[in-house]
Design a binder for these strands. Structure first.
Lengths: 342, 342
DNA sequence: ACCCTTATGCTCAATTTTAGCATAATGGGG
DNA sequence: CCCCATTATGCTAAAATTGAGCATAAGGGT
């Protein structure tokens, strides 16, 4: 790899040096676009006839000043969605991402973004041939992440399978059990049950992947007998991993930054707000405490108006107080903890 | 890139599509390598004769399975440092990163990583011609971030300059003042002083950049009169931004993950530990409360041995309890809040 | 008017956090 | 050898935050 003369001195340590030019390299941008409608956290996925579901992805185009504007541009063009909050998630560049492109592996870099949109528009096609963008509950891809109605049934299948996997390899059994305990709250013995940590979505997915319990894990390195469970919905390449990361990030972030509001309509009731947070975090919250939290942090303010209803007494309509960003050091919805009650 | 028949349908929305090939594209990996010696948070920078300081950076080499192993490899080879914790920070891909490469801008993607190492080895050269890697306190690049000895003097220069900048543009004055208030704790009026938030390092740097108060900001778009302050040490391209991000991330992370231990020797006293946390976060902590926190979270355990000393009564030597990772949902050093006292 | 349902107000107790006070060990200097 | 400065630790009272519920308010429906 020849360096130009003036670069010669700035050798090794220099970023401007040694592009990976000799290797076939492509760069894509992928987006996890999230909206919440009613009780469901929705993500926009491209459903291909025949193929696996995928996240909307596009090329890195020239002409855009930043990666983010590039992303915003094509997403808004393609899906007709106006993006609110956008943040970069991670850059995936594993060699094996590429689906063996002949003999010499092409490295495929993919920069994943998380985007929040206020309303889940029909989305529909979007001018794409042979693929439709549809809003899908993210729990379709991660059924074990939804604890809102109690412990997800699918864990009755996954837990034993995970234990079996852990025990299968004598050398790593201890470490594996530790990880299970930490991430799935499978207290080994009388071990104090650590409980469910809603932010460990990615780690849990990776464990399931390693254990060969998700479709992608089986495909990529067809090991393990594999537990077929109806609800395990596969996605293209490493898109499910991106989604897992997005969920984890968002669940973490709502606790210290007022990003949830990017998902709410201009005015809403406190219960609607609570349901949205619950949808994202996958756990139930204690209603009165949730309200207390929101109000004393002054995250919202009255609109004066009052509800349209869902059942009982009319509820006040509130709106997000944008000023809070300036007041509290780290405003957000610090979840008042889970509650079994609805 | 010819798509195989079954891929033909996966047009637009697919990541595997439309690489940005027509645009000259290079990819580099940059590393913010952090160590703490005594009271100083150190970062490894490449000091070029004549040029600006830079972060160690290298090419994305083929042959490595993941970006992270690629990074680990060349860093360990080049700097002879054994990396502990490594995490991806961000991918920078702004068009204007490239230093005008003739007429058609080449896009330079740079994936930045944060790496923690236990000891700051002399590092010295590392087989590089014309550049030396040296450990430097990160406060050399961000003097306003060190509040350990009270309010940094440099703020007496920056604050007025920032206010002037904010007021200069009538249209954006309000928003700018809000940002100043939020990030620098410049309560506008009698406004309750929000206080200093140690994690807002990146936002503060960006404000200073926009205001033309850091060297890079002046160079890239030579605006504003610019306040020359001795301590403002410039770095190459957007390396100082990367460093700001690294600091912010690390400051945030130590609060909920036991990463600090990656920076500590095998055994240490509680005060040493506290000093390390203070070095990173840039604020003083209340000693007794810090200890209580550490102990009741059982982050450490006795070694049985006892200190070597720094002054008074000998201190117990403790070591990190690796098991904590499995017990607490999110172990870390939740800073017990700042204290003016030493 | 009575019942069901959701909205809100408030209270009480259990914990956690903030700020200090007080005592214990060591080394150095009169 | 005693006094002092210095750092290590142990403990505690007061304040603030959380976790759980009880009780009452308002609508809609029968």
């Amino acid at each position: 790899m020849p360096a130009s003369p003036q670069d010669a001195s700035q050798s090794r340590h220099d970023a401007r040096h040694s592009p990976a030019r000799d290797e076939s390299l492509t760069i894509g941008l992928s987006a996890v676009i999230v909206a919440v409608t009613g009780d469901d956290p929705k993500v926009l996925v491209v459903r291909r006839h025949g193929g696996r579901d995928a996240l909307p992805s596009g090329p890195l185009e020239r002409g855009h000043r930043t990666l983010e504007t590039g992303l915003r541009n094509w997403v808004e063009r393609q899906t007709l969605q106006k993006l609110g909050h956008v943040e970069q998630l991670y850059t995936f560049g594993d060699r094996d991402r590429s689906e063996t492109d002949g003999d010499h592996a092409t490295r495929r870099l993919s920069v994943a973004y998380l985007a929040l949109v206020r309303e889940a528009r029909p989305a529909g096609d979007a001018g794409t041939a042979g693929a439709d963008a549809v809003w899908t509950s993210w729990y379709r891809f991660f059924p074990w992440e939804d604890w809102r109605d109690g412990r997800p049934a699918i864990l009755d299948v996954l837990e034993p399978a995970l234990r079996t996997w852990a025990a299968a390899d004598a050398r790593h059994a201890t470490r594996r059990l530790e990880r299970l305990s930490l991430n799935f709250g499978l207290g080994d013995e009388a071990e104090e049950r650590t409980g469910w940590n809603d932010e460990r979505t990615l780690e849990r997915y990776e464990l399931l992947y390693e254990a060969g319990l998700v479709a992608e894990g089986r495909r990529d390195r067809d090991s393990t007998p594999a537990v077929r469970h109806q609800m395990d919905t596969e996605m293209a390449v490493d898109h499910r991993r991106m989604l897992a990361l997005a969920i984890a990030r968002l669940r973490g972030k709502i606790k210290y930054r007022p990003v949830v509001f990017e998902l709410m309509p201009p005015s809403f009731t406190l219960l609607q707000f609570q349901r949205t947070v619950e949808a994202l975090s996958g756990v139930r919250l204690h209603k009165q405490n949730f309200r207390r939290l929101v109000e004393q942090q002054r995250l919202v303010e009255e609109t004066g108006e009052t509800s349209a209803e869902t059942g009982g007494r009319p509820a006040r309509l509130v709106r997000f107080r944008r000023e809070v960003v300036l007041e509290r050091p780290a405003p957000g919805v610090r979840l008042p903890m889970a509650s079994s009650k609805r």
